[in-house]
Design a protein around this nucleic acid. Structure first.
Lengths: 111, 111
DNA sequence: AAACATACATAAGAATCTTAGGTAACAATA
DNA sequence: TATTGTTACCTAAGATTCTTATGTATGTTT
């Protein structure tokens, strides 16, 4: 993801948010999109991505459709209705996280 | 820390920043300060805190002085010169993390 | 006397990641 | 044409960071 420990724990939030915005995406596409959006700073590792996608699917947050494009298989992931609720929830948790970190890091501005 | 996965990885950044601001603190004090600053939202677990403090010390970022206050021992931690550099670095990494998450979460505002 | 708060600590297990491999199709290049 | 690079999926071993559970000890409150 980066040599930065802070990214630990944020991969599912990223996946859910991208799918909320894009409708459907396949794994490799997610790695490329994140690279674009962060100017090459963030690198989603496949060894983290695929297990995460499978877990989100097994939890009922994602559904999959396999498509054959140019003789290669792509697995398109999209949010289930339950996943859409979870995406909203995760965005709220990200907001809370950011506010709490600001309050700790910059206590003078938290009044 | 919270039932929120996003906090994973941010404890050392929190410790280093608090010590940068306060000069010196002891473990239990850190747990209470974080609770105050986040209105009870965040709860730094002792099982995470003490191993983190010991690791930061073994890496040369923190130094310790034991003090006896009201017949109880407190271990006051403070930044070493190397730790001060590392604290600055961690704040920069937190800033980058926040910017990257914003860019992913809210791509329209990243231009 | 029991419960709560202060203050430290560690060990087992869970969760999330990195690293390092593997398969396969296609394109570009040396 | 052999090799490298890109696209596209996957898993397993190990590292790291956390939670949960437990322990010790002193002092305060109920």
């Amino acid at each position: 993801m980066s040599n930065n420990k802070l990214y630990r724990g944020s991969l599912t939030t990223i996946i859910m948010r991208l799918l909320e915005q894009e409708g459907k995406m396949y794994g490799y596409e997610i790695t490329q999109r994140v690279k674009e959006l962060t100017n090459g700073t963030m690198d989603v590792k496949e060894g983290a991505l695929y297990p995460s996608l499978h877990k989100l699917q097994s939890e009922g947050h994602l559904k999959v459709e396999a498509e054959k494009v140019e003789n290669r298989v792509r697995k398109y992931y999209s949010l289930t209705p339950q996943g859409e609720k979870e995406a909203v929830n995760m965005m709220q948790e990200l907001k809370e996280y950011m506010e709490n970190m600001q309050a700790i890091i910059n206590p003078k501005l938290s009044f």
